[in-house]
């Protein structure tokens, strides 16, 4: 099995990559290739030009700027799993990274590539939405910033416009008093999840963000999640978690199948329990 033939370019810097992307409408960016590679091999995608950005050092930085972590798009899941990048999430991102696909995939798969692929069942789409992360997207016209929850607009559909790439991910520091829970349901370890629950609850500040992910469409992100805990977030949030509210959110998102909703609610509940543990 081989992809259809393509031209291959290795740009010297980000601007050169953006120029190649702008000049060829059918060009595809490749970084680690863990999502695009299978599609090329199956010939589901047949770009005329593949622009390999995996060598661009500018996109490999990982640093703390003020009270947020800025990760270049080329940082791999394994980089985060192993702690080669700084952490502002008290280990939350390490835990998520360690359970993405398989180690051989994590050694090449990048956080920017995973987001660009916009698979609703991918881990970062949900986890970073719960953590309140933002993205910098860049094209020749300049840069813009977007909240993660506004980035994925459908199955494999992102807000990226023609000629635009994901440049960096900005992760805000997790408050010391905030609890984190992340759960997913996979039939086989390492497969795309059938349900994801992510919660960031801060009883001290009486705030909570919850995400119900892997629901075919973009994840359900509730930034002010008091309604899921009987109207207010307090130390007893685990006991106050109201599965019926989560179920209604899923109905509103178009999940008509009661069994599917039950799985999603159960996984979210697991994430809440993990946060409270």
């Amino acid at each position: 099995m081989k992809p259809a033939p393509f031209f291959y370019e290795r740009p010297r810097d980000l601007n050169a990559a953006l120029a190649m992307l702008a000049a060829n409408g059918s060009a595809k960016i490749i970084a680690g290739g863990q999502s695009l590679g299978p599609m090329l091999n199956l010939r589901l995608v047949q770009p005329e030009l593949v622009v390999d950005i995996s060598g661009l050092a500018d996109l490999k930085r990982a640093e703390i700027c003020g009270d947020e972590l800025v990760l270049g798009a080329l940082v791999t899941h394994a980089d985060i799993e192993d702690g080669r990048t700084p952490d502002v999430t008290c280990g939350a991102m390490r835990g998520v990274a360690a359970n993405i696909a398989y180690r051989a995939v994590r050694n090449r798969g990048t956080i920017g590539g995973s987001l660009s692929h916009a698979d609703p069942a991918a881990d970062w789409v949900s986890a970073l939405a719960a953590l309140g992360a933002r993205l910098t997207l860049r094209s020749l016209a300049g840069a813009r910033t977007l909240a993660i929850e506004a980035f994925v607009v459908g199955a494999l559909e992102s807000a990226l416009q023609a000629g635009e790439i994901v440049e960096a991910i900005h992760v805000p520091a997790r408050a010391g008093s905030a609890h984190w829970g992340y759960a997913k349901s996979c039939r086989k370890t390492g497969e795309f999840a059938h349900a994801i629950g992510a919660v960031l609850v801060d009883p001290a500040a009486a705030t909570a963000r919850i995400v119900i992910g892997a629901i075919d469409t973009p994840p359900i992100v509730v930034t002010d999640a008091g309604e899921l805990f009987g109207g207010r977030v307090a130390a007893d949030y685990k006991q106050r978690f109201d599965a019926r509210v989560a179920d209604i959110l899923l109905v509103k998102a178009g999940i008509g199948d009661a069994v599917q909703r039950h799985i999603h609610v159960s996984v979210l509940k697991r994430a809440v329990h993990e946060a409270a543990a």
Binding site: Y8, S54, A78, R84
Partner: peptide
């Protein structure tokens, strides 16, 4: 813990000089 890896980015990347197809033949399209 990291299997000996110390640098960031996809394994195998970063050693090449910029460039592309040295003989930019048009890919054969069916």
């Amino acid at each position: 813990p990291g299997g000996g890896r110390t640098i960031l980015g996809p394994a195998g990347s970063g050693w090449a000089a910029p460039g592309g197809n040295e003989q930019p033949l048009r890919p054969v399209r069916q």
